[in-house]
Design a protein around this nucleic acid. Structure first.
Lengths: 141, 141
DNA sequence: TCAGTTTATCATATCATCATGATGTTAGCA
DNA sequence: TGCTAACATCATGATGATATGATAAACTGA
C-alpha cells in the first residue's frame, strides 16, 4: 500500500542504518544482504538519499552510509519524499487543478484523510519507529 | 496520490455515469470525451467494473453503461478495488509477513492511519460524493 | 605509491502499466 | 435480412519502474 518498492527499500535501509550505524558507516553490501534487495539498485537509492541530505556517504575502506541527522530529527517524509512520483498530486481522482478553489467531487472528504496521512509521514521520525523495538521485538525492519 | 490512473479514471467514470445516467445507459464515447480519457482503454476499464458487478453494460443502439446498484449502495472501495495491485499489502515497508503477530517497526503506528484510509473507501459512497455538488459546484468530477 | 575496499555510475535488460488502432461481436430497428 | 450503433477484444507499441553487470572513481592503510 502506498509506497513504491524503491521508497520501501529506502525506508527499510534507513531504519537499518539507524539501528546498526552507531559505531560508524554501514556498507551497502550489509544492508542489501539484510533487506534481500539488489545491491546496485539499493546503492543508487541510498545515493539519492545522500543527495537529499538524509544520509552521508563515504567511499573506500571504512566507508559506507550514515545518517546525516540524529534519528529524532529525521521525519519519514524526508526519507520517502525523494521517491514519490514527481507530480504527487493531492487529488484523489488526479485532477491537476483540484483544490479548495476548484474542488473535485471527492476533494473535501478526501482532504481530511490525506492530511492525516501526510501528518503521519511528517510527524513520525525514525527514532519513533526504533523505539517500537523495545515494546515488541522483530528481527528485521 | 494513492490511486493509479486506471482507478482514477474508473472513479471519475462512475461518478459521471451516476450523474448523467438517470435516463438510461451512458455511452463510452461520451464518458471518454468528458474525462479526456482514451476511449478503448476506458472501455476496458469499464468492462472490468461490469465484471466486478459495479456496472451493467449493454451493446448496440441504446447501449452503454449503467450503475448496477443505487449510488448510496456503491462504496468507493467497490469501484477502486478491481484496480488495486494484486498483493495490496497493508505493510508500509512491504513485508509480506507483517501483522499483529510479526509487526514491522512501523506496523502499529501505520496500522491506525491505514485503517482511516480504508474506512474512507469503505464508508464513502458514490451518493456521498454527488451530494457535494450542491454545496460547491464543479464542472467535471 | 600501490593494493584493496567501497561507493558512483553507465549501459542495458525486464516487466507492468498505460495507451492506440484494427477488428470482432451483439443488439436495435427498418 | 441487413444496416448501423455500440461495446469487446486482440495485437502492438510507448513509457517508467525495477533490476543487473561492468566499469569508474575515491579513500585507507601499509
Amino acid at each position: 500500500m502506498w509506497l513504491n518498492s524503491t521508497a520501501q527499500n529506502a525506508l527499510r535501509a534507513v531504519l537499518y542504518i539507524a539501528d546498526q550505524g552507531a559505531h560508524g558507516p554501514v556498507r551497502v553490501d550489509d544492508i542489501a544482504a539484510s533487506l534481500r534487495s539488489p545491491r546496485n539498485y539499493l546503492s543508487k537509492t541510498l545515493h539519492a538519499l545522500a543527495r537529499a541530505g538524509v544520509l552521508r556517504s563515504a567511499r573506500g575502506p571504512k566507508g559506507g552510509f550514515q545518517l546525516a541527522d540524529p534519528p529524532d530529527r529525521l521525519a519519514l517524509s524526508r526519507v520517502v519524499g525523494p521517491f514519490a512520483p514527481a507530480g504527487e498530486r493531492r487529488c484523489l481522482v488526479g485532477r491537476a487543478d483540484c483544490g479548495n478553489a476548484h474542488p473535485c467531487l471527492a476533494h473535501h472528504r478526501w482532504a481530511r484523510v490525506a492530511a492525516i496521512v501526510e501528518d503521519f509521514f511528517g510527524q513520525t521520525t525514525v527514532a519513533d519507529l526504533l523505539k517500537q523495538t523495545t515494546e515488541s521485538r522483530s528481527h528485521s525492519p
